[in-house]
Amino acid sequence: MTDKSIDGSGLSEKQQYWLAHLHTCRLEAGTIKGYAEANGLSLPSLYFWKRKLTQMGFLEESGSGKRRFQRLELSSTSPAGVCRIQFPNGMTVEWSGNGGESLLSVLRSVAAL
């Protein structure tokens, strides 16, 4: 499982604090409950921040592989032939090209980040 942003740039100090704990928790490969108890953290807070940072795109969902849908807004401000996706975490991907292969290539690159 890969995370979209390991360094947490663009996050508040509090968000970075919880992101760091969630990264460490994943690296230790134990349970979230066990990690919270071992580190004196509130279990409800750890779950809250896991959900929040996942929704923001800084963590991938674990377990079932479910993906959350985001609202798509079409804009006519891009030049012809240029496509742009802006993610909830502020990351923007822009490319030009026609057809599904171009999009597939871009999405594979983004997934590897």
Rank of each mutant, 00 (worst) to 15 (best):
T24L: 12
S64M: 10
A36N: 08
L19V: 06
H23S: 02
W18G: 02
C25V: 00
V93D: 12
T2R: 13
Y17W: 15
S76P: 01
F69W: 01
G100P: 08
F87M: 05
E13P: 03
R84D: 05
S75E: 14
G100A: 14
G90D: 13
T92S: 13
G65P: 06
L43F: 13
A38R: 11
K66Q: 08
L59H: 02
S45V: 02
S12H: 01
G63Q: 12
F48V: 04
T77Q: 11
C83M: 11
S42K: 11
G34S: 08
M91R: 14
V82C: 12
G90F: 07
R51L: 04
E60W: 00
H23V: 02
S64R: 12
Q70F: 11
F69P: 00
G10E: 07
L53D: 02
S96P: 00
E73G: 07
G97C: 01
L41A: 10
G81D: 12
G10K: 13
K66W: 07
L27E: 15
M1R: 08
K52C: 03
L59P: 06
M91I: 15
S45F: 07
T24A: 06
Q70M: 09
L53W: 02
S5P: 01
R67Q: 11
N39D: 00
W95Y: 15
Q16C: 04
G100K: 15
L22E: 09
V106L: 10
G40W: 02
G40V: 02
S105E: 15
E37P: 06
F58M: 04
F48H: 12
W95G: 05
M1N: 10
S9I: 10
G81N: 04
G34K: 08
E94I: 09
G99W: 11
T92K: 08
A20P: 00
S62H: 11
W49V: 00
Y35I: 03
L43D: 08
R26S: 01
S64D: 12
L43P: 03
E28G: 07
I6A: 11
S102K: 09
L104K: 14
Q86D: 13
F58N: 05
L107V: 13
A36W: 01
S9C: 03
G63H: 09
Q16A: 01
Q16F: 00
L43E: 09
E28Y: 07
E37W: 07
G8H: 05
N39C: 04
M56S: 09
R51Y: 02
G90Y: 07
S42L: 03
A20V: 00
S45I: 01
K52R: 10
Y47F: 14
S42F: 06
Q70K: 08
G30W: 00
C25E: 11
V93E: 13
S12M: 06
V106Y: 03
S5A: 10
Y17D: 02
S42D: 15
L27F: 09
K52H: 07
R84Y: 02
S78R: 05
P79W: 00
E28L: 15
L104T: 13
S75Y: 01
W49G: 03
L53P: 05
Q15D: 13
A29R: 15
S105V: 13
C25L: 12
L103A: 14
T54K: 10
N98M: 09
S78Q: 15
V93P: 05
Y47D: 09
H21G: 05
T92A: 13
D3V: 14
I6Y: 14
R68C: 13
S102F: 09
